[in-house]
């Protein structure tokens, strides 16, 4: 059901674009004003969210240590799984952000045998790198697709971008040559979707908010692919629009571009406007996670908690001795005050 709601929502967005930019002829609105609004919402929303996070302090250093700490010289230190310095922490974060280090560790617990086996039941832990692989395919192809699109906003197109395009069409399949990143993006999203449908536990925890972005990104990818290979679109006219978009020039007159373009742009607009209010904010949050971005050095260096309450104090030794003094003296334990001294203080 959750998946269906999300699918319908994305269909509805497609219909809005088809009707709005196609039948109703509101190309200007869908080509310029909505994208501008979306970018504004994204920028404000993203910054507000990150500032919101940053406003809350990190009172304690709570890294999850994933290897041997820095100890004696003769014990090998797992520098990047249990960093002791800022530099080592940077490497840990880079491994996390660029290579999804934690997901790479993934295991699946499998139970073999029946209940009748009792204590001889077998539980094994198999390596499970599928999620890691799907995530890597998805994120990196999305990144390449994103960078490739900068050719639409830059004039002249930088040579690095041309090189990227060349590499991306390396296989030379079809004409125009297939961008591998586009295909990989559609594949990656599909695999992540499939996983949510197929694995019962993952299906059980999945919400509309999990399916919606996947369908939305799939819609973005498919409309883009459709535009390039089938519903051929006038690329020069498109570039005119995109340049106007980025030069904030509303004067440009939009005409002669197929409706698929507006569907594509509208879905992208929805995606970026939705991002700051969704779980997609993990792209910002991953940098702020205190279990990953701090060195394990809180025994070596003092770390201040801004809201540390000085009024929280230990039950004092004096109060402790007052309660147990007699028994302590009887047992031969040293005390601060003899019984006479204590009596005198009490009398005062």
């Amino acid at each position: 059901m959750n998946a269906l709601y999300s699918l319908f929502a994305v269909f509805a967005l497609v219909v809005i674009a088809l009707v709005g930019a196609g039948a109703a002829g509101m190309e200007q609105l869908f080509g310029l004003y909505i994208p501008w609004l979306a970018i504004a919402v994204f920028l404000v929303g993203f910054v507000a969210k990150v500032i919101g996070w940053a406003k809350s302090p990190v009172p304690f250093r709570i890294p999850t240590t994933a290897g041997q700490m820095k100890s004696h010289d003769w014990i090998r230190h797992d520098k990047y799984d249990n960093p002791a310095t800022a530099g080592q922490t940077f490497v840990r974060m880079a491994l996390e952000v660029l290579l999804f280090r934690s997901l790479f560790r993934n295991l699946t617990a499998q139970r073999f045998g029946s209940a009748q086996d009792g204590v001889d039941v077998k539980i094994r832990y198999a390596s499970a790198k599928w999620l890691w692989l799907f995530a890597l395919i998805f994120h990196y192809s999305f990144l390449v697709v994103f960078i490739r699109h900068w050719r639409l906003f830059l004039d002249p197109v930088p040579s690095a971008l041309l090189a990227l395009e060349y590499a991306d069409t390396f296989l030379q399949i079809g004409a125009p040559a297939l961008y591998m990143s586009g295909a990989a993006l559609a594949l990656g999203v599909s695999l992540l979707l499939l996983r949510r449908f197929v694995v019962p536990q993952v299906r059980y925890i999945s919400q509309p908010a999990d399916y919606f972005p996947l369908f939305l990104i799939l819609g973005v990818a498919l409309s883009g692919i459709l535009m390039r290979y089938w519903a051929k679109t006038d690329i020069m006219a498109v570039k005119e629009v995109t340049m106007a978009l980025f030069s904030l020039n509303p004067a440009v007159h939009i005409e002669g571009i197929g409706v698929v373009f507006f569907v594509h742009v509208f879905l992208v607009s929805c995606l970026i406007a939705y991002l700051p209010f969704s779980k997609l904010m993990h792209m910002g949050g991953v940098f702020l996670s205190p279990t990953r971005n701090l060195p394990n050095d809180s025994r070596a260096r003092y770390h201040r908690n801004p809201w540390n309450d000085p009024n929280v104090k230990a039950h004092s030794y004096a109060a402790y001795e007052d309660e147990f003094r007699e028994k302590m003296i009887e047992a031969g334990l040293p005390v601060e005050k003899t019984l006479e001294e204590a009596a005198k203080t009490e009398a005062q």
Binding site: W53, S56, P59, L103, I205, G285, L288, T291, W307
Partner: peptide, 18 residues
């Protein structure tokens, strides 16, 4: 407001199930 960990953890889970 006291714990960034709490705030971030409330927002960023993608329910991947790992």
């Amino acid at each position: 407001d006291k714990y960034r960990s709490f705030k971030v953890f409330m927002d960023v889970c993608v329910r991947c199930g790992a």
